[in-house]
């Protein structure tokens, strides 16, 4: 086989995979503008499903709740996660390896297990289901992502900068505020966007922790799908996927994730 042929077939393969990844999303987006409620072709342009969606108060409430939860999660997870990353980077202490390893279970254990476990504990200590429980869970899931992202940025931090500032009389707080934080800012922004995405797209944990009738958008969508498809769900789904892809696109730009480093 010649190398030119290999290169060509490689590109074709890559192209096919992109089609596989995006085609269903594109179809869903197109169908959300189709007048037929049963996804019948020929295609007839209409925004009726978006109008119906905008008039559905349940959907709007769930959407608002999802955004609110994602924002609160982002603020808390970013603050706690950044502080923890700085401490893990700056200090050497016994047990550091253990603390770093403890970040792994929340990512690696299937959300079905974490979610049901949270439900059991929150119920037995009286927190129960509802928005506070959902936020508790989301922050815990987002924290490891923030810490990993910020730590990656910190790894390229030149410690001598801190020492130079200190030798010129800056106290620790000034050093953190004027030297460390500006340097890690891109990592923090990327971490915050990851946290937002983890929370906003989170279905499993929200599903077990949210009060029926008082749910987040993904849980509402799941319930609606199981009751039977409606094109309104299609319209919301299209909006959600556009929003989360936009957020992740920004995150990727900020963290320079996957570029030629």
């Amino acid at each position: 086989m010649s190398r030119a042929f290999l290169t060509l077939s490689g590109r074709v393969w890559l192209g096919l995979i992109l089609v596989f990844l995006y085609a269903p999303i594109a179809v869903m987006a197109a169908m959300s503008f189709n007048a037929s409620p049963f996804y019948q072709l020929p295609f007839e342009f209409s925004t009726v499903w978006y109008q119906k969606m905008a008039a559905n108060s349940q959907v709007l409430e769930a959407a608002l709740r999802s955004v609110l939860i994602a924002c609160v999660t982002t603020v808390i997870a970013t603050a706690l996660g950044t502080a923890a990353s700085i401490a893990l980077f700056r200090y050497e202490f016994p047990g550091k390896k253990v603390l770093q390893a403890l970040l792994f279970p929340p990512i690696a254990i299937p959300w079905l297990i974490t979610g049901t476990a949270m439900l059991i504990l929150f119920f037995s200590i009286g927190i129960g289901r509802g928005t506070p429980a959902v936020i508790l869970g989301h922050v815990a899931l987002a924290l490891p992502y923030v810490i990993v992202t910020v730590s990656a940025r910190l790894a390229s931090f030149d410690r001598t900068l801190e020492e130079a500032a200190r030798s010129m009389g800056a106290d620790t707080w000034t050093v953190v505020r004027r030297i460390t934080l500006p340097w890690i800012a891109p990592g923090v922004v990327a971490g915050a966007l990851f946290a937002f995405a983890v929370s906003f797209d989170q279905f499993v944990v929200s599903y077990f922790l949210s009060e029926p009738g008082d749910t987040t958008l993904p849980v509402l969508i799941y319930t609606a799908i199981r009751k039977g498809f409606t094109p309104e769900i299609n319209a919301i789904s299209t909006l959600i996927i556009t929003l989360s892809m936009a957020v992740m696109f920004l995150a990727a730009r900020y963290s320079k994730f996957g570029g030629d480093q």
């Binding site: 869903m28 993904p218 498809f229 769900i233 996927i241 989360s244």
Partner: peptide, 13 residues
């Protein structure tokens, strides 16, 4: 990184 539930739903369509 986008919503997995929505992507599964899109396959149903």
């Amino acid at each position: 990184w986008s919503n997995s539930l929505v992507r599964i739903f899109s396959w149903a369509i």
